[in-house]
Amino acid sequence: MKFIDLFAGIGGFHTGLEKAGHTCVGWVEWDKFARQSYQAIYDTDGLYTATDIQDVKGVDLPDADLWTFGSPCTDISLAGRKEGLKGKHSSMFFEIVRCLEERVQAQKELPAFLLMENVKALLSSNGGWDFARVLIEMDKVGYDCEWKVYNTADYLPQNRERVYIVGHLRKKIQPKYFLGQDKVQQLIDNLREK
């Protein structure tokens, strides 16, 4: 699959997807130090890139099967400002929606999958309405969603719970392409035994 790495940071999604045999075709990151790290870690020659998602036009993004993003959690995190999706930083989620809407309006192909990561507090932010808003916005641009909270403690010596939301382009992709809940649990159990 071809993927675009939005809010790329230093490339957590990029590393995992590349190891799984997928190809990055573009990335967006505004932090200059994260950009320097990303370029040092990955071969970015010839890839689409931009520094500010607010300046990106959805129609200019290269075609890709998957868009990955972890929009800023600053306003959602329990340690943050708690302004939710209305906050200056966490509202950047809506820039992804805008880019998708621009592609719909221009009749350009949408990615078959969306993969969003954020802090677990997204589920309860603003009484749960922020999470509902994420699902509604993804639904409006044509995606059915599944989600699950994972704790890095299941894989690494670190306790960080994150919610992962997978959007499947409606009527085109069926969820069978992803591991079912029982398979994910089996994988976790196998890792714990090693």
Rank of each mutant, 00 (worst) to 15 (best):
M1Q: 02
K2E: 14
K2W: 09
L6E: 06
L6K: 07
F7R: 14
A8M: 11
A8H: 06
A8I: 12
G9Y: 09
I10A: 15
G11V: 02
G12F: 03
F13A: 05
H14N: 11
K19V: 02
T23S: 13
T23K: 13
V25W: 02
G26I: 06
G26K: 00
W27Y: 15
V28A: 08
E29F: 08
D31K: 12
K32G: 05
A34Q: 09
R35C: 15
R35N: 11
Q39N: 14
A40W: 00
I41M: 07
I41V: 09
I41N: 13
Y42A: 03
D43H: 10
T44E: 00
G46A: 08
A50W: 03
T51E: 15
D52G: 11
I53Y: 14
Q54R: 15
K57H: 13
V59G: 06
D60W: 11
P62S: 05
D63Y: 03
W67F: 15
T68V: 13
T68D: 06
S71E: 02
P72S: 02
P72E: 03
C73F: 04
T74F: 04
T74L: 13
D75M: 07
D75E: 03
D75I: 06
L78K: 01
A79V: 13
L85G: 05
L85K: 01
G87L: 01
H89L: 00
S91K: 14
S91F: 09
F93P: 04
F94M: 03
F94L: 02
I96H: 08
R98D: 14
L100A: 12
L100P: 06
E101K: 15
E101V: 01
E101A: 11
E102K: 12
R103M: 10
Q105D: 13
A112M: 05
L115K: 03
E117P: 04
N118H: 03
A121L: 01
S124K: 03
S124D: 07
S125P: 00
N126D: 04
W129M: 09
D130A: 06
A132D: 09
L135P: 00
L135Q: 06
I136W: 01
E137S: 13
Y143I: 06
Y143H: 06
A153M: 07
D154M: 06
D154C: 00
Q158P: 08
N159I: 10
R160Q: 08
R162G: 12
R162M: 12
V163H: 10
V163E: 10
V166C: 08
G167M: 09
H168T: 12
H168D: 07
L169G: 09
K171T: 14
K172E: 15
P175N: 05
Y177P: 02
G180I: 00
D182N: 14
V184H: 02
V184W: 07
V184G: 05
Q185R: 10
Q185A: 10
Q185C: 03
Q185W: 00
L187P: 04
D189C: 13
N190L: 09
R192A: 14
R192Y: 09
K194C: 10
